[in-house]
Simulated scan of single mutants.
Amino acid sequence: MTSEIDRDMKNRPSWRKPVGMILILLLILLWCGIAVTLIDQLSDLNFWLQLPVYVILGIAWIFPIKPLLRWMNRGSLRHLPENKGNGASDET
């Protein structure tokens, strides 16, 4: 009986995923606004001075998203330690 309840709980869709997707879209929109404002101010500079800014802005948006993705999948914002040494794995 409890295995059926456990199976039903695992098959239920989580509310965290749709909320997380909306938050990701909002974060990307916010990041785009920040990037456009910054790029607009730097548009008079030489290309070689602009290039590092483009590269940093193009990569840095991932870091605020990582904890949100972790929360969507695990329900926790912190990184949970993996089970090492016992051969068990969360991946299936």
Rank of each mutant, 00 (worst) to 15 (best):
V53W: 03
W61S: 03
L42H: 12
L25K: 01
P67T: 06
K17G: 02
M1D: 11
I22H: 04
M1T: 09
S14R: 07
P64H: 07
V55A: 10
L23Y: 01
V36C: 06
S3A: 15
E82Y: 02
L26P: 00
N11S: 13
L51Y: 09
S14W: 05
I24H: 06
P81E: 12
G87W: 01
R74W: 11
E82S: 12
L27D: 03
N83G: 00
P18W: 03
G87H: 07
L57R: 02
D6N: 14
R12I: 08
M72G: 06
I28N: 03
Y54P: 00
Q50G: 01
L27N: 01
L51E: 03
L29Q: 04
V53H: 03
D44E: 11
D6V: 13
W31Y: 15
G20T: 02
S43P: 03
T2R: 13
S14H: 06
S43A: 08
W61P: 01
P18I: 01
Q50C: 00
K84S: 15
R78L: 11
S89F: 04
P67S: 10
F47P: 00
L68A: 05
N86H: 14
N11G: 13
K10V: 01
F47A: 08
L25S: 09
L49M: 12
F63A: 14
V19C: 08
I62P: 04
V55Y: 08
L26T: 06
Q41I: 02
S89W: 07
M9T: 10
T92W: 15
N73E: 13
Q50F: 04
R70V: 11
V36N: 05
L25V: 08
P67A: 05
W48G: 06
I5N: 00
T37Y: 13
V19Q: 04
I65A: 06
N83T: 15
V19M: 09
F47R: 05
D40N: 12
A60Q: 10
W48Q: 08
I39H: 12
P18R: 05
I59E: 06
R12E: 07
P52G: 05
L51I: 00
P52M: 03
D8F: 10
L30G: 02
L25A: 12
G87Q: 07
L42K: 06
E82P: 00
R16V: 02
L69G: 12
L25D: 04
E82T: 12
G58K: 09
V55W: 08
I39F: 15
G58N: 09
P13T: 10
V53Q: 03
I62S: 04
Q50H: 02
K84E: 15
Q41R: 09
I22P: 07
Q50E: 07
W31A: 06
Y54I: 00
L45R: 09
K10I: 03
L49A: 11
D6H: 14
V55H: 02
M72S: 07
E91I: 14
M9R: 14
E91L: 13
L30R: 04
C32L: 14
L49H: 09
K66F: 14
A88C: 01
N83K: 15
I62T: 07
M21L: 12
P81T: 07
E4R: 08
V36Y: 13
D44N: 13
I56E: 03
I5H: 01
P18L: 05
E4Q: 14
R70K: 11
